[in-house]
Amino acid sequence: MTTTVTAAPVVNTVTATTTVTVAPLVVAGASGGAGASTGPGGSSGVPAPLVGQGSGSSAPYFGSCSEARAAGAAPMHVGDAGYRPGLDRDKDGVACE
Protein backbone atom coordinates (compact mmCIF):
# COMPACT_ATOMS: atom_id res chain seq x y z
CA MET A 1 0.00 0.00 0.00
CA THR A 2 1.32 3.44 -0.99
CA THR A 3 0.11 6.73 0.55
CA THR A 4 0.71 10.07 -1.12
CA VAL A 5 0.49 13.28 0.95
CA THR A 6 0.34 16.70 -0.69
CA ALA A 7 0.92 19.75 1.51
CA ALA A 8 -0.67 23.11 0.71
CA PRO A 9 1.67 26.14 0.66
CA VAL A 10 1.56 28.38 3.73
CA VAL A 11 1.14 32.10 3.10
CA ASN A 12 1.64 34.69 5.84
CA THR A 13 0.60 38.30 5.37
CA VAL A 14 2.27 41.02 7.43
CA THR A 15 1.02 44.60 7.53
CA ALA A 16 3.34 47.34 8.79
CA THR A 17 2.20 50.81 9.80
CA THR A 18 4.10 53.96 10.66
CA THR A 19 2.75 56.81 12.76
CA VAL A 20 4.21 60.26 12.22
CA THR A 21 3.38 63.21 14.47
CA VAL A 22 4.17 66.74 13.32
CA ALA A 23 3.86 70.12 14.97
CA PRO A 24 1.05 72.44 13.85
CA LEU A 25 2.02 74.78 11.01
CA VAL A 26 2.17 78.44 11.99
CA VAL A 27 1.39 80.96 9.26
CA ALA A 28 2.97 84.39 9.64
CA GLY A 29 0.33 87.02 10.17
CA ALA A 30 -2.29 84.51 11.31
CA SER A 31 -4.24 85.40 14.42
CA GLY A 32 -2.62 83.79 17.43
CA GLY A 33 -5.54 82.81 19.61
CA ALA A 34 -5.34 80.57 22.65
CA GLY A 35 -3.01 77.66 22.14
CA ALA A 36 -1.33 79.16 19.08
CA SER A 37 2.22 77.98 18.40
CA THR A 38 5.01 80.48 18.61
CA GLY A 39 8.59 80.43 17.50
CA PRO A 40 11.67 80.48 19.71
CA GLY A 41 11.52 83.17 22.36
CA GLY A 42 7.71 83.19 22.26
CA SER A 43 7.40 85.60 19.34
CA SER A 44 4.19 84.90 17.44
CA GLY A 45 4.19 84.57 13.67
CA VAL A 46 7.62 82.91 13.56
CA PRO A 47 7.30 79.25 12.62
CA ALA A 48 8.94 76.80 14.97
CA PRO A 49 11.17 74.31 13.13
CA LEU A 50 9.74 70.90 12.39
CA VAL A 51 11.45 68.14 14.34
CA GLY A 52 12.69 64.81 13.08
CA GLN A 53 10.89 64.42 9.75
CA GLY A 54 10.39 60.69 10.33
CA SER A 55 14.03 59.86 10.96
CA GLY A 56 13.56 59.43 14.71
CA SER A 57 15.93 62.36 15.23
CA SER A 58 15.21 65.27 17.56
CA ALA A 59 17.24 67.78 15.49
CA PRO A 60 15.23 70.71 14.06
CA TYR A 61 14.25 70.54 10.40
CA PHE A 62 13.96 73.73 8.40
CA GLY A 63 12.12 73.58 5.09
CA SER A 64 13.88 76.70 3.86
CA CYS A 65 16.56 79.20 4.82
CA SER A 66 13.80 81.73 5.50
CA GLU A 67 12.48 79.42 8.23
CA ALA A 68 15.99 78.95 9.66
CA ARG A 69 16.61 82.72 9.69
CA ALA A 70 13.23 83.42 11.30
CA ALA A 71 14.11 80.94 14.06
CA GLY A 72 17.53 82.56 14.55
CA ALA A 73 19.37 79.39 13.49
CA ALA A 74 21.14 80.66 10.34
CA PRO A 75 23.87 80.30 9.29
CA MET A 76 24.33 76.59 10.08
CA HIS A 77 27.53 74.60 9.65
CA VAL A 78 27.98 70.88 8.97
CA GLY A 79 27.34 69.16 12.31
CA ASP A 80 25.04 71.91 13.63
CA ALA A 81 21.47 70.97 14.54
CA GLY A 82 19.26 71.80 11.56
CA TYR A 83 22.03 71.71 8.93
CA ARG A 84 21.20 69.70 5.83
CA PRO A 85 22.79 69.67 2.38
CA GLY A 86 19.56 70.90 0.74
CA LEU A 87 20.05 74.28 2.43
CA ASP A 88 23.73 74.58 1.44
CA ARG A 89 23.51 75.99 -2.09
CA ASP A 90 27.25 76.32 -2.78
CA LYS A 91 28.15 73.08 -0.96
CA ASP A 92 30.81 74.75 1.22
CA GLY A 93 29.56 73.31 4.51
CA VAL A 94 27.66 76.44 5.56
CA ALA A 95 23.90 76.53 5.00
CA CYS A 96 21.76 79.68 4.80
CA GLU A 97 24.70 82.08 4.71
Rank of each mutant, 00 (worst) to 15 (best):
G29E: 00
D92Q: 06
A81Q: 11
G45W: 00
T18V: 08
P40D: 02
A28G: 14
D92K: 06
G32P: 08
A16I: 10
G32C: 15
A8Q: 14
A34F: 06
S37H: 06
G93H: 08
G72A: 02
G93A: 10
D92Y: 05
G42N: 13
G32Q: 09
T4R: 13
S37R: 09
A34Y: 07
T2V: 15
S37E: 14
V78M: 12
A59Q: 12
G86N: 11
L87Y: 00
A7Y: 14
P40I: 01
H77C: 04
G52Y: 08
A95G: 07
S55K: 11
P24Y: 04
G39R: 08
V46H: 09
A70G: 13
A68P: 11
G72I: 01
G35A: 04
S55G: 15
V94T: 14
A73K: 03
G52F: 12
R89S: 11
R69C: 06
G82A: 01
R84M: 03
V78F: 03
S64K: 05
T13V: 14
T19P: 02
T19W: 01
A16M: 09
V5Y: 05
G41Q: 08
A34S: 12
H77G: 09
G79L: 02
V27A: 13
H77Q: 14
V11I: 13
T18M: 04
S31T: 15
G42L: 13
R69D: 00
V14Q: 13
A73W: 04
T18H: 08
Y61C: 04
V14W: 05
N12C: 12
T13E: 12
T6G: 09
A81W: 03
G29S: 00
G45T: 03
D88W: 02
A8M: 05
G32K: 04
P9M: 05
A7G: 10
V20I: 12
G56K: 10
G39N: 10
A23S: 14
S66T: 15
M1D: 15
G56L: 06
T13H: 08
V27K: 11
T15G: 10
A73Y: 01
L87H: 01
V46A: 11
G86M: 04
K91M: 12
A59P: 03
V10D: 08
T6L: 13
G35M: 07
P24G: 11
T6R: 11
R89A: 11
A8L: 04
G82R: 10
D92T: 06
R69H: 00
R84V: 13
A8D: 09
L25W: 02
S43W: 02
A23N: 15
T13W: 00
T38S: 15
G45H: 01
T19C: 07
G32M: 02
